[in-house]
Amino acid sequence: MGYETTPMNALLEVQDLHVAYGNVEALHGVSLRVNEGSIVTVIGPNGAGKTTLLAAIMGLLPVRGEISYAGASVARSSVEQRVATGLCLVPERRELFAAMSVADNLLLGAFQRYRAGDKSIARTRDEIYQRFPRLGERRTQLAGTLSGGERQMLALGRALMGKPRLLMLDEPSLGLAPLIVKEIFSIIATLKASGVSILLIEQNARAALKVSDSGYVLETGEVAIAGASAELGENPRVAATYLGQSVVAGPKGSPGLVRQ
C-alpha cells in the first residue's frame, strides 16, 4: 500500500487474513496496521466484512493469516488471553449483561485484571464514573433498563475497565441520537489523548475520517483503498460513495451506499 512512511511502532498488524463461514469466505486476505497511539477507521458498505474483521482480530472466529499484536503473534491465543493483554472490543450489539446492574457490568469489565491481582480497579471505575456521569447516577440500575445512548456508554465503560491498549469499536454511533453521536466521537478523541489506540468501524464515514489518523475502505472482504484519513477524504471514489451524500439520506439504489 505504501502510504505510511512515518517510523511508528505498529501495535496491531494484520497480514493476509482470511476468514470463512463454512465454505463461504468473508475476508479474502485483508492486511491492516494500527500504530501505537493512533486511530484507524475502517469504512465500507454493509456486508463488506467489517464486523467479521474485528471478531477475527478478537479471536472469536477461526482465521488463516497472521495477526500480531504488541510485537507478538496472537493468532493462537484465546479471546481471554487477548483481553488480558489489553485488546478490547465493543461489539455492535453491545453484549451487555442486561439483568445485572451498571456497577456489576463495569466490574466484570475488569475480570481479567482482577484475576491478575490488579489492585487499581476501583480507581479505574471512579475515572469511568467521572467520564460518564450518567453511569454513576445509574450505577444500581439494571443494564437492560438503560436507553440506547446509555447502553453504548456502558459498553464503552466496560471495555475501558479492562485498561485497553487497543480498543476496537464496532459502529459506536449506530442507532443513537445526533447529540449522543457527537459525544461519543468527542470521547473517542479524548481516549486517544490518554494513549489508547483505537480501531474504529463506522457507518458515519465523515465523522470517522475526521477523528482518525488513517483509514481503510473494505469492500466485499478486501481492502479497496487505504491511506491517511485526510487523503481518503479527498479520494474521489471515497467522496462519491461514502461522503458524497449525506449519511442519513442518500438516493436509493446507489451502489455501495453506506446506509439509506
Binding site: 450489539r93 456489576d104 466484570l108 475488569a110
Partner: peptide
Amino acid sequence: LYGKALRATALNRVGARLVGVSPTL
C-alpha cells in the same frame, strides 16, 4: 466477582468472553 462472572456467562456468552471470562473456567 467469580459468581458474577458465572451469572454473566449465563446471561450473555459473547459478552462474558469479551470481558475475559473463558467458557472453560
